[in-house]
Design a protein around this nucleic acid. Structure first.
Lengths: 232, 232
DNA sequence: CGATGGTTTGAGATATATCAAACCTCGTGG
DNA sequence: CCACGAGGTTTGATATATCTCAAACCATCG
């Protein structure tokens, strides 16, 4: 029995395109790896040696300037794909925000496997297209939205993407209450703001009764319509 | 003889993955279309009914907010692919910046054709991955760079991407002199700035002797190293 | 030549950054 | 069990980059 048989994301990751024989072959070239918060799986500018599937946890993709400014350019969740297949370097670092479990492949092995399995490439294409859509939508936020709009948009996105899948009964309703996998500084790095500005927007939204903040990491959306209005 | 035989981008667009028989089949479901500056090929939020290859010209991809703020989320050049295959809606509008010529397909026809031609999907995947890399790099600019750095980065990118391919002898050196396909307002919409700020940065770079501006649309890079230093 | 649309320049307003201090929260060790 | 310390967070005061509003400018085209 391969590790894939019990995999939590077997039916949602790109692996879902493969039959049992194929899964076995893919499993043979991959291995599991656990990460703790802050631990990196790859670094910006490094040779693209690995690719991976996220099984559990949340990871950030980030780039920075020479002088230390950082921008988080993507956030990945269970079943998402990580890394740069068919390419030589990785344009961003990948770092765990929570405890995480990933299924890692050597890029070369994965490339070869993918080229022999068009259905896998098709899934990967679909995922990449969707990610590109999301990324472009985020550019509107970075380029044109105010701090208040950015924070509100961010909270809405979180409430939608942090849903634990698997609960078939509830068809992925956005969460009313959730724990942010980000520190305030990391939220700032997602939104292109400073930590102080993010903090002030959080307290303002709380003061306006739109959200509640039971603890540092937890958020409760009290007035979703209000939050959506703030998101611009 | 099909239109593809004389196509300027036959060997660089995703079509380059196909043999002559396949090209003929693809040609049968596509058609040429000319666009003039300002003319749109698709609109934000619209059903994804078309996809296309750019043969000639430059087009912008853009989204906006309800209240009229606009953000250009991508710029496409000859041989680039446009549209959202395997998806229901297009997240951004596509509008010609120059006179342009594209090769258009119904999305459904294209989807079906692509699924039967893994080598085409592979090319499309490569292109999409590269575009995602570029887009993420742009997020750093939008989120973390100053106006001066944004404009300098923009000019450098333009000088690299506006090179007319085909000149085999010179292996795509960046241009020293070129005509921007953007108005000042459009530059602002790419960089997440206002038109006035863009204008001031242009004149400052000119005053500093880093660039020259022979006319509204033309740019000469006098000091590439200096410009790179400004780009942060 | 005058009208038009885009661009530049200027003066002032403002959102966000910066700098600095106070404040929690939580784990540690006395 | 409480005091302490450290990291992260919030709050405050001020600075500044960029935006906003407004006018002048300049090419282009009838």
């Amino acid at each position: 029995m391969s590790a894939c048989d019990t995999c939590l994301v077997r039916n949602r990751a790109i692996c879902s395109s493969l039959d049992n024989e194929e899964i076995k072959a893919l499993n043979a070239i991959g291995r599991r790896r656990n990460l703790t918060p802050g631990e990196s799986l790859m670094w910006e500018g490094e040779d693209s040696v690995l690719v991976a599937n996220v099984i559990e946890g949340v990871l950030k993709l980030s780039t920075g300037t020479e002088d230390g400014r950082e921008q988080i350019v993507g956030v990945v969740y269970p079943s998402d794909f990580i890394g740069r297949p068919f390419g030589s370097t990785s344009g961003h670092g990948v770092t765990a925000l929570t405890d995480a479990r990933v299924c890692v492949f050597s890029r070369k092995d994965f490339d070869a496997f993918a080229r022999e399995h068009p259905s896998l490439e098709h899934k990967l294409l679909q995922r990449t297209l969707a990610e590109l859509d999301r990324t472009r939508k985020w550019m509107l936020l970075l380029g044109r939205k105010s701090a208040g709009e950015k924070v509100a948009s961010f909270l809405l996105e979180m409430s939608e993407r942090l849903v634990q899948p698997g609960c078939i009964d509830a068809p992925d309703l956005p969460l009313r209450r959730f724990a942010l996998p980000f520190s305030r500084q990391q939220v700032a790095d997602v939104l292109g703001l400073t930590i102080e500005t993010v903090s002030r927007q959080f307290t303002r939204l709380k003061a306006d009764g739109i959200i509640d903040l039971p603890s540092r990491r937890e958020v409760v959306i009290l007035d979703r319509a209000g939050l959506a209005a703030e998101a611009g």
